[in-house]
Amino acid sequence: MPPLPFPPFKLCPCNSKQPYAQCCGPRLSGEQPAQTPEALMRSRYSAYVLQDATYLLTTWHPTTRPAELEVGTQPQWLGLNVRRAAGDTVSFTARYQERGVRRELRERSTFVQESGKWFYLDGVEG
C-alpha cells in the first residue's frame, strides 16, 4: 500500500512546528537524508503517521530490521514529544489511540551512522 499523501504546507506530523515540506517531507521523499538521529527519529514518526513502510524499512539498520513491516490505520498516531536527543540516542513520547483507548509509547531509540547515513538500530521502553 502506498504512503498517505500529506499537504506540503501543513505542519509536519512530527510536531516540529515547521511545514512538512521543510521538515520530514524531503526525508520521506528521499531528497534529503536525515542529518541527525533526532531528524531521523522525527521522520520515522511521520512515516508511521503516513503509513510509509518502505521508508521505515529503508531507515532501519539491516542487523535489526524485520523482514517485512505492516503499517495501517491502527494505531492512530496523535502526537510526538522529543524529550531528549544526545549523541546517538533520542528519547521520546508518542501519543496514540488504538481501538478507542489513548496511550503513550515512551522509548529511548538508538541510531547508528554508516557511510554518512543514519539508521534506526533499536529502542527500549522508558
Rank of each mutant, 00 (worst) to 15 (best):
C23L: 03
C24N: 06
C24V: 03
P26Q: 02
L28S: 08
S29L: 15
S29P: 01
E31T: 07
Q32C: 14
T36W: 05
E38G: 00
A39F: 01
L40E: 08
M41L: 12
R42H: 14
R42W: 12
S43Q: 04
S46C: 14
A47R: 02
A47Y: 05
A47Q: 12
Y48M: 08
V49S: 02
L50A: 07
L50H: 08
Q51R: 15
Q51V: 00
T54G: 01
Y55N: 04
Y55E: 07
Y55V: 00
L57T: 15
L57S: 04
T58L: 00
T59W: 15
T59S: 13
P62F: 06
P62V: 12
P62D: 07
R65Q: 06
R65Y: 05
P66K: 12
P66T: 06
A67Y: 11
L69Q: 10
E70W: 04
V71R: 02
G72T: 02
Q74H: 05
P75E: 07
P75H: 07
W77F: 04
L78G: 02
L78F: 12
N81T: 15
N81L: 14
V82K: 06
V82F: 10
V82A: 08
R83K: 12
R83D: 01
R84A: 13
R84K: 14
A85K: 03
A85Q: 02
G87W: 13
